[in-house]
Design a binder for these strands. Structure first.
Lengths: 207, 207
DNA sequence: CCGCGCGTGTATACGTGGTATACATACCCG
DNA sequence: CGGGTATGTATACCACGTATACACGCGCGG
């Protein structure tokens, strides 16, 4: 319920109308997670249904304004103090992909890792490029957007470290299997510790 | 479309029925992202609708079996080779929360950070505890599940580093504002790296 | 023996997230 | 004056996630 809570928090600051909420959200987070306008309106009506905000007619310009209720203020405060649950983390597509890549035969894990690695590297470069032009002002929103950017950088770096780690472990697992006494050694398999460092295919890893 | 692709990849391995798919998915990823059974069936029908899998009646035990089609095999291969798009990363609830915390008045950012930090630390301890009992066998699925676990560890560590980084930057920003009549006074006074034991390698990250 | 819990297995409903799009107004500019 | 663009509201539609209904088989104790 990320969007829901975020809109609630923004409304706690001051009453707003739909379009304005979207603008404020994006101003604080950069264009990192573009928020679709439609979602704002549907979420607002759900918030009103649940008694967390209240639509107070239209203002002088004809905008449908919303104010947060007491219950809403309470829930917003709870959102800020309650840490996000790491016990059930959001699905990580990359982790799932690699987990399947090492278990499903016929997939070249090394290639998957390298493709992802270079993609993440370019993203990282984009972030650092953005950072130069983002750290100009001293406004709150600049600080927030800069922190969000840092978050992206940190997680991208972690992802690269993890990919390297995976490559090493996959290679090691392949090696263990190769000189496993009972291993059928289907073909010389070009020696996992041979020239190409990224040549660990599933044929070597699994089965 | 994570689930969709994952199921497709599993079916590429061998034909299966719904419940079995869920079991295979969880065996490879541990219980990290428990996959709801219902989702399997709805996803399977969507896959069939799109011509990527084909339901081949029931087997001798009455299970509704599914096989992947040529188009499905193609899409699965594409999924493995195409890196996950970092250009539009999934919404990060924590990053959003902090970005709003520093921009909405009346929120104690320090408290938010500390709560999250301790929550992430406990999660990290849980992971390392799990790791000991997970690295026993040598089967494919053990390697996969172990890699997934490593992914969680890496990202939790990154999160903690980021939180420390945020704390330092927020403190610095507050200090600048405090002794900032007009000109940026020289001394950062309190010193951002006061007593923090986990002093993140903030590198040349920002400012 | 029979009911009961439990694991296995399939299917559907419902709320939310996310995206596209329809629709309306205002304002600038050629 | 007519069209493009920015602002603003609203709705439709699909995908995801969870809960739940429903059915079957099997072991176990009263």
């Amino acid at each position: 319920m990320t969007i829901r809570s975020a809109l609630l928090a923004l409304l706690e600051h001051k009453p707003m109308y739909g379009y304005q909420l979207r603008a404020e959200f994006e101003r604080r987070t950069g264009a990192t997670w573009p928020l679709n306008v439609g979602q704002v309106y549907t979420t607002l009506s759900r918030l009103e249904r649940d008694g967390l905000v209240e639509g107070t007619g239209v203002d002088e310009d004809g905008h449908g304004m919303y104010v947060v209720t007491a219950a809403g203020r309470e829930e917003a405060a709870a959102w800020f103090t309650t840490p996000v649950a790491r016990s059930q983390p959001p699905r990580d597509e990359l982790a799932i992909k690699l987990a399947l890549a090492v278990t499903v035969p016929g997939v070249d894990v090394g290639t998957v890792i390298q493709h992802q690695r270079s993609a993440t590297m370019t993203a990282l470069q984009d972030y650092t490029r953005l950072k130069r032009q983002a750290s100009s002002g001293t406004a709150d929103s600049d600080l927030a957007w800069s922190l969000v950017l840092d978050s992206l950088v940190f997680s991208a770096e972690a992802e690269i470290r993890w990919l390297d780690h995976c490559e090493a472990r996959v290679r090691r697992a392949a090696a263990e299997r190769a000189d496993d006494p009972v291993a059928p050694a289907a073909g010389p398999s070009a020696g996992p510790s041979a020239g190409n460092p990224s040549a660990a295919t599933v044929e070597e890893v699994s089965r």
